[in-house]
């Protein structure tokens, strides 16, 4: 039995501050480690199979985006701006008082349910990954391998 918010995955994440804080914290540590060229989280799928997963390259794409290298970032992963926007929203929701965030979260939830934008983004991400694997596999793997 799936939860009622199965098709609105972002709003519960924003509502659960503890979970959001841990996710944002680990993501921040990961970005810091990679930008310092230190070992961090490695994609278990890519490490074993040699095939990049749909999220491979996102960390580097976000770092390049933060440095202002938009073309370089998009070359690594086209969804980096969306991820960065989500991360910034997550931090804002963590920092702002509940009196402001609660109505905003309700609006996000309603928007998710009505427009299905999260579904569209996630399906788009999977299609983007499949297209990269099918039509530019060698270049994609080499790009991720570094």
């Amino acid at each position: 039995m799936l939860p009622s918010n199965a098709f609105a995955p972002v709003s519960p994440l924003l509502r659960d501050r503890k979970f959001a804080l841990v996710v944002a914290g680990t993501a921040g540590v990961q970005i810091a480690l990679v930008s310092l060229s230190l070992p961090g989280w490695e994609c278990p799928f890519f490490r074993v199979t040699g095939i990049p997963c749909p999220g491979c390259g996102l960390t580097r794409a976000v770092i390049l985006l933060l440095k202002g290298d938009v073309p370089g970032s998009l070359r690594f992963h086209a969804f980096a701006p969306i991820l960065l926007l989500t991360a910034v929203s997550l931090i804002l929701f963590l920092v702002l008082p509940r009196s402001i965030t609660q109505p905003a979260i309700a609006k996000v939830e309603l928007l998710e349910q009505r427009t299905g934008f999260t579904v569209i983004i996630l399906v788009g991400l999977i299609l983007y990954w499949l297209a990269r694997l099918l039509f530019m596999q060698t270049a994609f793997v080499q790009l991720i391998r570094g």
Binding site: P9, W41, F45, C53, G55, I126
Partner: peptide
């Protein structure tokens, strides 16, 4: 799917 994309 979010879990596949972001292992963290």
């Amino acid at each position: 799917i979010l879990g596949i994309i972001c292992g963290l």
